[in-house]
Design a protein around this nucleic acid. Structure first.
Lengths: 135, 135
DNA sequence: TTATATGCAAATGATTTGCGTAGTC
DNA sequence: GACTACGCAAATCATTTGCATATAA
């Protein structure tokens, strides 16, 4: 948006990025706020949101829109697919899908030129599968 | 939720369903509210929301979560994919994709059993392609 | 009659934003 | 010192919900 803006290296930004990159759980902004707060007691939720927007605009992290009411964030900016557990909400990575190329190669119909796509899977994680069995 | 609840045939519900089924545009709740209001002047937005939830729970329509801030609705409950124009927001159907089977057949990894997925494409509709060219 | 639906308005919940101050460069 | 970023709180926006009344069955 503002091409000449100088990005500063603040403690808040550093800790937010560090904790997100360290995390395996694809946290929501609120979850990350709680994590970061353990190190920076006075940080505000607004700052977490502002930095998550900034960092994803810069392509350093990615915002995941998996369909719930809250967005999730991934410290890995590389494109890869995700599965979300419909029971517990856990989100896992799905690296190297066999279908990947067929979806990526789809360029659209006559009148619609495709530039990107979003693919999310839903299912049961191993823990919730066990719980289902026990019922 | 409540298995013994009797669904009534109200004018509001009938008009909401009719207008959605007639529509080609995958309207948001607010857009549909404006359309329905032309026939039922006093209908409330809350009623539109309540009926959209009910009708999609019943499997008569479907709610589309295409990633914007507002949900969209489709009078056709059959599963099919959509493209959204990144310029103007128009949403089109994408029937009978060649990739369909490869995505549908993906059942998951060792620990994650896939039960469903969501696939949305983004791109430029023909009108917005023309506008791009003129620039 | 009686339970379901409606209209209205207030509540909710995630996210964004305005403002005055603090901290980086 | 200039300008970016922060904390705080209020604002926003889509959606949901409580309540008193209306209406389908």
């Amino acid at each position: 948006m503002c091409p000449s803006k100088k990005i500063r290296n603040t403690a808040q930004r550093r800790v937010i990025l560090e904790e997100l990159q360290k995390s395996e759980s694809h946290p929501t902004a609120g979850e990350l706020y709680e994590i970061v707060r353990r190190r920076l007691v006075d940080i505000s939720l607004g700052t977490v949101y502002r930095n998550l927007v900034l960092l994803s605009d810069m392509g350093i992290i990615q915002k995941l829109d998996l369909g719930g009411s809250e967005a999730r964030f991934d410290g890995n900016p590389e494109q890869h697919y995700h599965v979300e557990c419909i029971e517990c909400g856990r989100v896992n990575n799905l690296p190297d899908l066999p279908i990947e190329q067929s979806v990526k190669n789809f360029k659209g119909t006559d009148d619609f030129k495709i530039t990107s796509h979003r693919l999310v899977f839903y299912g049961l994680c191993s823990q919730c599968q066990k719980k289902e069995m026990e019922k």
